[in-house]
Amino acid sequence: MTPKFLLGRLIDLAFVMFGVSILVFLMIRLIPGDAVMIMLGANTEITPDRVAELEHRLGLDLPMPVQYAHWIGGALRGDFGTSIWTGRPVTEEIASAIGPTFELTFLAVLVGAGLSIPIGAFMAQARGRGAEVAVRVGAIAGLTIPSFWLGIVSILFVSKLMPGVSMLGYVPFSEDPLGNLQRMVLPVFALCLPMLANLSRLVRSAMLDALGQDYIRTAKAKGAGRRRVVYRHALRNALIPFVTSVGVSVGYLLGGAIVVEQVFAIPGLGRLVLGAISERNYPLVQATILTVTFAFVLVNFIVDLLYATIDPRVTR
């Protein structure tokens, strides 16, 4: 990885984050009608004093660039202001909800990406008509199964087969490791299946591609064993599209987690943002969207760097 490549990527990163922050900042100003009235109207009686107070608290009485500077300056220091109805700092509310979402997404990436390599490599050995069609139909079905439906159906199954097993809610890992993991099994399964289906198919076709290349013939000719050829030579090259795809999948998983949390009653960011929308708590909505998107952008930045490490050609 050349310094020039790294610098270019950092500039891209800064630009995208700046753009994202501007859009999220503008959100509250794009609400048709008077955002302050709407926010107050949902919860209390509207009086001129209250309007002025809330406007001031949201900084809406200042010029736009000043508002943005205040907002982003606070955000960078981890200060998103206080939640309008609870009076708790927004950062605190996000911090208490981020754990479950992070764990869910992290486990789903781990399971989805981890299982897809052996499954894809195994499927690469099946060739011919029937296998092609079966792999394709299976992968597409896995990709298009709605995760929330899968979650609901799995709850139904488990509750019929093993009544008494607690599947809903969330217990922190630090309090009860077994209970935590037990409750994570179904949500992680429901969340990672589309990714698993997609990645397995990708690994399979990349492996088939790689196995047909000259360097594989060379490796075989110099007497490398079958395992070594598959895992060391073919897999490394199959990893290149794989890594990019994992990065993109994280975005889907973060979105999917919002829905899956709702199915399994997990108190994560999804619940937080949905609750905030129904309460018209816009600063909380903004802060959650900004946090999650920044996380996603950072993941993709790291994936870009990884990609450049695996395949040195891209940095040239």
Partner: peptide, 21 residues
């Protein structure tokens, strides 16, 4: 570049943001 910025949001989250507005 503007498209890149929109593309940077997780899909469902961007949709939720639009609906929140």
């Amino acid at each position: 570049r503007l498209m890149d910025v929109l593309f940077a949001f997780p899909i469902l989250l961007l949709a939720i943001g639009v609906i929140a507005i």
